[in-house]
Design a protein around this nucleic acid. Structure first.
Lengths: 148, 148
DNA sequence: GTTGTTTTCTTGACAAAGTCCAGGAAATAG
DNA sequence: CTATTTCCTGGACTTTGTCAAGAAAACAAC
């Protein structure tokens, strides 16, 4: 009841602090995001249903949207894959994505301080976020060096 | 016949250099990508049909895939939008995306040289690309300062 | 040119991810 | 405890893209 599993009471408090109603589906979705790491809507639906017995797809999407808007959850959309949701918010960290298996890892901001918020030429845009995605192969997907 | 419109002969040569057959649909798609800036498959289909009269959707996708594999075209997939295709390849430049209208601009690599290929912690990944997307509002979508 | 092989194009069905809608059910404010 | 707001259910729908089989076109060799 500590650490391994984020206490439901804490999540309820977060919902209330965000001015949101606390419903069983919403809590289940939020819990699922906290436990899941980087999960897509489908996986979160499965996880939430394990907690509740049943839950409509629409309820999952509705709640994910609500949680996104409240800033309790963050969505990333790597190319060639459905959107993923994560619980780590507010620090604008970046991601490492495996081209083969799709595994996603967090990485803290790259070299220096906010290096990415300064493109060489802003074209008049008012920039509010720099999203960095590193692509490559995760350890499990790298070709093994054939050991003689 | 110069500048404004990339000469079809040059594009044909590029196709041949890549070991690809030159077909009217393929050339039309490649031309469309060159003219389009950052276009999605749908817009490219429309553009290619203007040149040819008719063209199946599948032919557009097939050719885009072939062109991607040949390295003659690059695909980007900003969140909340269908994939976009561009003709500028080989320089790993980055993108500026308007959150409101979806407009996309190119930006050259950010501060310093290859600053982005060095995440703080690679988690054992073998990284081959760092993709940077700047999000914000383009000039046209920025709230106008109400001039008194 | 003509022929033959290979690649490409067309047509139409299919799939994944997500959205829209309308009515019923649950949560909070009073 | 009731009213009101918000949420959830179920099902149809949309968008973006893929699969598959046969017809057509490109290119090489003659």
């Amino acid at each position: 009841m500590e650490g391994m599993r984020v206490d439901a009471e804490i999540l309820k408090a977060k919902l209330r602090a965000a001015g949101m109603r606390v419903t069983a589906p919403r809590l289940a979705v939020l819990e699922a995001v906290h436990h899941g790491g980087h999960c897509n809507a489908d996986a979160l639906t499965v996880a939430a249903r394990e907690r509740l017995g049943s839950l409509s797809r629409q309820a999952v999407y509705d709640n994910l949207h609500a949680l996104l808007e409240a800033g309790l959850v963050r969505r990333i959309e790597p190319a060639n894959a459905p959107a993923l949701y994560e619980a780590r918010v507010g620090d604008n960290h970046h991601h490492l994505v495996c081209r083969q298996c799709g595994r996603v890892e967090d990485v803290d901001c790259v070299v220096g301080r906010r290096p990415c918020l300064e493109p060489s030429e802003a074209h008049g845009f008012d920039i509010d976020e720099a999203e960095v995605t590193f692509w490559g192969l995760c350890p499990a997907c790298q070709p093994r060096p054939t050991n003689p």
